[in-house]
Structures are given as C-alpha cells and as structure tokens.
C-alpha cells in the first residue's frame, strides 16, 4: 500500500510541475498585457517602468523561476486589473462559487439518484422513458442556453426571480454566504438548477444502469425468492452494491462541476471564481489566469489521487497491480 501511495504521489507532483510550466508558457504567449493596461498616450518612461515593475523585461525562464519562488512563499502575484493579491482575490470569490456548487450538487443528488433508480426499477414504464429523455437533454443541451431560457422565463417574463448577481449576503459560522438570507436563496436557486442539470443527467444514467444490472443478478433473484419486499431489496441490497461507481463518479464530477461553474456564473453574472477567470482571460490578467489554472490542476490531480487511494482501499486488485 505504501509503495503504491508513494508512486502515485510522485506522479502527481510531476504532473503539477509539468502543468505549471505548460500553463505558464501558454498564458505568457498571449498578447502583451501592457498594451491593454496602459493608455497609448503614456510616455515611454512610464511604459518601461511598468514593464520592469511587473518583471516583464526578464526572460521567460527567469519569470517562471521567480513565480515558483513566490508560490513557495504563498504569493501568487498581483492582479494587474484589480491591483490586489491574487490569493486574496480568488479567496474573496471562492465562497460564492462553493455555495453555488454545493446547492447544485445537492439538487442533482436528491433528484438524480432516486429518478435513476426508479427508471432502472421499471425500465419500460412511461415515467422511466420520460426520465431518460430528460437526462439526455440535461446531457446534451448546452448549459448556457438552458440558463438563458431560465432567465427569460423566470426573470424576464414571470419576474419571480432575479436574473443575476448574488443578492444579500449574510453570515453562517463567520462565512459570508447568500444561503443565510431569503434574498440570497432567490438569487442562488436558478443558477444552481442550471449547474445541476448535467450532473443530474449523469447520476440518472449511472443509477439506472446500476439498477438494471443489479435487478438481473442472482442475489436479487434470491432475495425475491425469499419473499423480501421490493423496498427492502432495493434499499438494503441493490443500493449498497451499486453505490461504489455512483460515489466515484460523484467525486470525480465535483471537480468538473466547479469547472462548469465558469459557464453558469457568466450567464447569471454570479460573482464567483468562474466569472473571475473569464474576465481575466478577456482582460489578459495573466497572474490571475496562471494562478487559477494551477489551482485547478492541483484540484484535479488531488481528486484523482484520492480516487486512486479510495479504490486501492476498496479493491485489493488495484493495489497489487499498481504497487509493482
């Protein structure tokens, strides 16, 4: 187990380093941010000063080393647009994204898993067909367009919900969140539903597939033969057996829900990290782009690592094969 862990950890570190170089070089290949930041009328002297101040006159490898050195000290640089530390900037936006993701994940789970289980339990019923059709829609129709339709219907036509923004922010346990106020909830519910649709479709498909497969196994037939009620078979026997793949994908998809928040946040002008990264791409705010991307890479590598470890805990075959 230890060998396996060490090997995976080592790979993860290499990946993070490799990705940081790719991201750094990639992002620095985009245009010259100085052109965007300084008005063309500025004197050459101001220009040179600014270039030196941001370290843009240094060769790329030196800029990268400086960056790494600063990262080691917990300093990810300063946003060129907001002129505050990137760490502060990202952390000030993070609660908004996290609460959005949290609500959407809860919605997806509470609706998706029971719906999928039902669709697998009665696979030929009309309800099952309707559920599956919905999951195809959630899967294939682009998120941003559904978000737009939601705005048109509930904000513009019906006027029930606000079309964007985060609303009033209260505090729970010292964390600022819109989930503390009714007004905040009215702002969060529409983007959260929008963000949940893809994940919901996925959970529906997974739990349906697991259910269909499980219904045909010997242990279920045996349980039936014993005369156990269906409810007990489903919740005590089947759910336990099919929960592992569902939990895995659930964990993996948590990361991509964070990523998809980019789209939803842009549609609903939700002031989270996703909106921040889009704005910084459009404004060529390099330090923010680099930091965000590297954080995302670390997040994904970490998710993968955790999944590997959990798998190795659950399934000795993985452990033996990987540890060689």
């Amino acid at each position: 187990m230890f060998g396996f862990l060490a090997q995976r950890l080592f790979q993860a570190i290499i990946v993070v380093f490799a990705m940081s170089i790719i991201v750094f070089v990639g992002v620095y290949a985009i245009g010259n941010p100085i052109d965007v930041l300084i008005d063309p009328g500025a004197t050459a002297e101001i220009r040179d000063n600014l270039i030196r101040q941001y370290g843009l006159d240094q060769p790329l490898w030196r800029q990268y080393l400086t960056f790494l050195g600063n990262v080691a000290q917990g300093d990810l640089g300063k946003s060129m647009v907001y002129n505050i530390s990137v760490v502060d900037l990202v952390f000030s936006r993070l609660p908004a994204t996290l609460e959005l993701v949290l609500v959407s994940v809860v919605i997806a789970t509470v609706i998706g898993i029971p719906a999928g289980l039902y669709a697998g339990y009665r696979p030929n019923g009309i309800a099952a067909k309707a559920i599956m059709a919905l999951s195809v829609l959630g899967f294939s129709v682009p998120t941003f367009w559904i978000g737009m339709l939601l705005i048109m219907l509930f904000a513009v036509n019906l006027g029930w919900l606000p079309s964007g923004g985060r609303g009033e922010v209260g505090t729970i346990f010292g964390i600022p969140t819109s989930l503390a106020t009714a007004n905040g909830w009215s702002h969060v519910i529409m983007p959260a539903i929008n963000l949940s649709l893809f994940k919901m479709g996925l959970l529906i498909r997974l739990s349906r597939a697991g259910m269909v497969e499980a219904m045909n196994t010997d242990y279920v037939k045996f349980a039936r033969a014993q005369g156990l009620p269906d409810g007990q078979i489903v919740f005590r026997h089947i759910l336990r057996n099919i929960s592992i793949p569902i939990v895995t994908v659930f964990g993996l998809e948590l990361g991509s829900t964070l990523a998809f928040a980019v789209v939803t946040e842009s549609v609903f002008t939700w002031p989270g990290v996703g909106k921040l990264i889009i704005d910084s791409i459009l404004q060529l705010d390099r330090p923010v782009m680099v930091s965000y991307l590297i954080m995302v890479v670390i997040l994904f590598v970490q998710i993968n690592l955790s999944v590997d470890i959990v798998y190795a805990r659950l399934d000795p075959r993985v452990r033996l094969k990987g540890g060689k």
């Binding site: 993996l252 991509s256 980019v262 889009i278």
Partner: peptide
Amino acid sequence: SMPAILLALVL
C-alpha cells in the same frame, strides 16, 4: 480527468 470546457477555454 480535466473537463474539456476548461481545456478548450485555456487553449
């Protein structure tokens, strides 16, 4: 393991 949308966005 990385969402395609993020990758495409960066590229």
